[in-house]
């Protein structure tokens, strides 16, 4: 017998989903402000949240462009950071079994948070897992985009981004994103070597390259167990 039809308490799954969606969504304000601080227009900032919809990739695009990098560097860094969403899709595909327009929407909502909540709910059965995926994905999407706009409008009205600490908020955001991933010696080693390699490359490579180059470290460290 399959677990897919098992009954579950929708309120509990919804509560778990919103507990993730609301704080993550409000963090969209920081993205909105950072994008404006990096020279993006309000329209471009909102489109990044609506179309790209993957926090780390979005911060990378505005971070690289804000540091004077080329569009190619920004695209490469943002896309490499988006790779993992593809693997989440691979993981979620049998759970969601999507086709047509639902596959397009489901794919767009496939991010760290929606996948994370869905996998957490899997013990309660596939129906709970699916519910968690959609509730979290839609929740994050709505709040993230709303707060992106709020952050962008706010930043537009304050002037010099440095005077409000926005230029430090961006690296702090990256630090907050990488922090929970540093779970063992190997991940810490990759983190430190990537930071050192990037700093060594700053004086000699065009902006953006010091960041993408560290993907090679990830491949080298991950090649063998």
């Amino acid at each position: 017998m399959s677990l897919s039809g098992a009954p579950f308490d929708k309120r509990v799954v919804l509560r778990d989903s919103l507990a993730v969606a609301i704080p993550v969504g409000t963090y969209g304000a920081a993205f909105g402000a950072a994008a404006i601080g990096s020279g993006f227009s309000i329209l471009q900032t909102c489109l990044l949240s609506l179309l790209l919809f993957s926090g780390a990739s979005q911060f990378a695009v505005v971070g690289v462009m804000g540091a004077g990098g080329s569009a190619l560097s920004a695209i490469a860094t943002g896309s490499l950071l988006g790779l993992r969403n593809g693997l989440y899709g691979l993981r979620m595909a049998p759970v969601l079994s999507l086709t047509g327009i639902k596959k397009i929407i489901g794919a767009q909502l496939t991010i760290d948070e929606s996948t994370g909540v869905a996998l957490n709910q899997e013990v309660k059965g596939q129906a709970a897992s699916r519910y968690g995926f959609w509730a979290t994905g839609i929740g994050v999407y709505l709040f993230w985009n709303l707060f992106t706009l709020i952050g962008a409008l706010g930043a537009k009205s304050i002037g010099d981004p440095s005077a409000w600490g926005l230029d430090a908020a961006v690296p702090a955001a990256f630090l907050g994103l990488v922090w929970p991933r540093l779970i063992d010696t190997k991940s810490k080693l990759v983190s430190i070597s990537a930071a050192v390699l990037a700093l060594l490359l700053i004086p000699i490579a065009p902006a953006g390259v010091p960041i993408i180059a560290t993907a090679l470290l990830a491949i080298a460290f991950g090649w063998r167990n």
Binding site: A56, F59, A60, G63, A67, T77, L80, L81, L83, R84, L87, D167, A168, V170, P171, F174, L175, L177, V178, R181, L182, K186, S187, V190, S191, I192, A194, A195, V196, L197, A198, L199, I202, A207, P210, I211, I212, A213, T214, A215, L217, A218, I219, F221, G222, W223, N225
Partner: peptide, 21 residues
């Protein structure tokens, strides 16, 4: 393994570049 290490490398590089660059 590589998939889980790529975000760690890129995000750490971004922290370094945005803090010191």
């Amino acid at each position: 393994r590589i998939n889980s290490l790529i975000p760690i490398a890129l995000l750490s590089a971004l922290v370094a570049v945005q803090s010191f660059g």
